[in-house]
Design a protein around this nucleic acid. Sequence first.
DNA 1: CAAATCTCCAAACGTTCGGTTGGAGTTTAA
DNA 2: TTAAACTCCAACCGAACGTTTGGAGATTTG
Lengths: 199, 199
Amino acid sequence: MYHSPTERLEYDPPVAWNTQETRQKLLAAASTHFSRSGFAGGRVEAIAREAGINKERIYQYFGNKEGLFAAVLESEVERLLDGIDITGAGADALGTLAGDLFDRAAQHPRLVRLLLWESLELAEPVSASTRGAGCARMVAALEQAVPRSDARGGADTLLSVIGIAFADTCLPHLSRLISGSDSPEDRRSAVVQQARRLA
Amino acid sequence: MYHSPTERLEYDPPVAWNTQETRQKLLAAASTHFSRSGFAGGRVEAIAREAGINKERIYQYFGNKEGLFAAVLESEVERLLDGIDITGAGADALGTLAGDLFDRAAQHPRLVRLLLWESLELAEPVSASTRGAGCARMVAALEQAVPRSDARGGADTLLSVIGIAFADTCLPHLSRLISGSDSPEDRRSAVVQQARRLA
DNA sequence: CAAATCTCCAAACGTTCGGTTGGAGTTTAA
DNA sequence: TTAAACTCCAACCGAACGTTTGGAGATTTG
């Protein structure tokens, strides 16, 4: 195995196999890069370098750059709503939901960013059937927690709570122009308050 | 002036000057391409071809690709909220605002897309001071129309109404997974209804 | 133990891309 | 009328990029 003169090692140990770890390292690095720069702005070479894996392995495991991007989205975007349940009833339910969503976005900003890149760069969502099923469950739970007369109340409410909770993550520049630099605590409090009003 | 054999003309008329038109054509084509594909995915060559202008002109007028992108954002993103005033009071004011925002997004989807690309691809917003002033005026008007006790009510309300109004434009895939393929009329109605509840 | 298969690598390839150059013609100014 | 300045173009350049190739070594199989 040849190294360039500037990094020639005294002894190159042979490379042991670790198929699962290789794949996971590539996915983790790809998640970072695609979250930051999107599909078009992400660089295969830079992803591989950060993973510490040869970029040829990307083609072996994922097919191509598009396959890698899809794999990242498949593993990440479901996590956005994963484990967030509807608890309580009425205004409490909506406030808690909004707070949980806000916290999720605050702790994992890359998830919302990946969702946005998916929206802008893909014609169709990834994992549509499983994500659709997850959303349907949330809608049904919301309809139980916040009963309403109109037939689509659950779906409309869920979408509005998401819109409120993610407004500053989806549109950070506009948010800052509107609200100034308020603290995450203040922002969270406002999100919970506004969502409660939808009851 | 040389043309390739496949498009050799019998006679090449010399090119007259039209500096303003050239610039506008480039901006229009750039708006289309950057709205669709973002900065990283937009192609200078493709933009120039669509404008019918030599791509070297882009460097003359805008400096580089980044300058072109900034020029597009500067001319487009202010149009998103431009001319949208707060009318009425209470729930009516919020409902009308949400409806107007929804209509603006529906009629000019490229504006929201450009806003999203700005959010994802730029560290700072363009035209921050003029946009900030415009937002401050809207916040003040909202505080008049929907008086509230908390000090930041106007800003929080505006951001929430925007979040509700643009939820399906910002996150179209997630919206469709949640709501199914409802009609724009139904979607608009839901947006107005939900926004009214924030009063 | 040897052959087959698999994983991993460095290097290379062909294409794409943003940006520049040399020059032709248009318009303006003296 | 001529020179200067400006606008516009085709072609080009160097770098970047996604993808492939040839081969070395690790692991599995018979």
